[in-house]
Nucleic acid binder design. Structure first.
Length: 269
DNA sequence: CATTGTCCCTGGAAGC
DNA sequence: TGCTTCCAGGGACAAT
């Protein structure tokens, strides 16, 4: 599932193939993919435009066009952007061709991914919290953002308006590394725990980017290769396996309907 | 504003 | 073998 490290990997690997190139053909197979404007207008406004830059904010991929507008893409659960892959098929929702002969396929089994065209460079994506790897994300900022929150820390970590880009897998990994139980009240963390959590979030995200993302479901890099970050997961999706630190069996509980994996010994309630 | 629950969407795995 | 249920989960949205 594409979270921050996966979207960052996709961005890095698409850039050299797409920047400076023009859209020469656009095929939309699934009308639900485009949020705005209409399909016809979307294609007309994109056709012939040059890609100036590819950026990322949280889990959103932002394709900046030379005309100042931007194409915003969210892959949600199973979306993938593949270079020079299949151009038709059951799960192909859109295909974009470019003047250098490259072809970009939007592949998405569960059809939850979306994209839209924005008017200005100030893409109107929802209000998001700080980027975990930016200077805006300090221990103090994290403490301020958790203060007074009564919801479980796991739920708050998944709230994109608190911190941008963290999803279910990396929330579980960060909480494990910080030794914090997912159900612990967010506002009740000690300053020591907050410090540990901050460090764990930064480290987990950095390491996952270094490993080109985690291929637990059907995440693929643009070239079709998997990432390797999931090979180093300690608790995420490891139900029933022994904790790498203490050997206790990893458990799964539901926190706000999200599967949450943790070690009952290392992360006491 | 904070919080919680529902829905969207499909396919693989597990259970019976 | 075939049916049902669970599970994967980001985010919009409604309700409280």
């Amino acid at each position: 599932m594409p979270e921050l490290p996966e979207v960052e990997t996709i961005r890095n690997e698409l850039k050299p193939h797409l920047i400076g190139h023009k859209f020469t053909e656009i095929i939309i197979y699934d009308s639900k993919l485009i949020l705005q404007p209409s399909i016809e207008e979307f294609c007309r406004k994109l056709m012939g435009q040059t890609i100036a830059d590819i950026r990322r904010r949280g889990k959103y991929l932002i394709i900046n066009l030379a005309n100042g507008k931007s194409l915003v893409i969210h892959l949600r659960m199973t979306g993938a952007l593949l270079l020079n892959s299949e151009t038709a098929g059951k799960h192909v929702r859109a295909v974009f061709k470019f003047d250098n002969g490259n072809c970009l396929t939007f592949f998405d089994v569960r059809r939850l991914g979306v994209m839209w065209l924005n008017k200005g460079i100030n893409y109107s994506i929802p209000e998001l919290g700080p980027e975990p790897l930016s200077d805006d994300f300090s221990v103090d900022i994290l403490a301020k953002r958790l203060k007074g929150r009564k919801a479980p820390i796991k739920a708050v970590l998944l709230d994109q308006s608190v911190i941008a880009g963290i999803g279910n897998m990396y929330a579980d990994e960060a909480l494990f590394n910080a030794g914090i139980h997912p159900m612990k009240t967010a506002g009740g963390l000690s300053s020591e725990e907050t410090k540990k959590l901050h460090n764990a979030i930064v480290e987990v995200i950095k390491k996952a980017i270094g490993n080109k993302g985690a291929s637990v479901a059907n995440y693929k890099r643009p070239g079709g290769e998997p990432g390797t970050a999931h090979k180093y997961f300690k608790v995420a999706h490891q139900r029933g396996k022994p904790c790498p630190v203490c050997g206790e069996l990893i458990q799964r509980i539901a926190v706000r309907n999200r599967g949450s994996y943790f070690c009952p010994n290392c992360q006491e309630e």
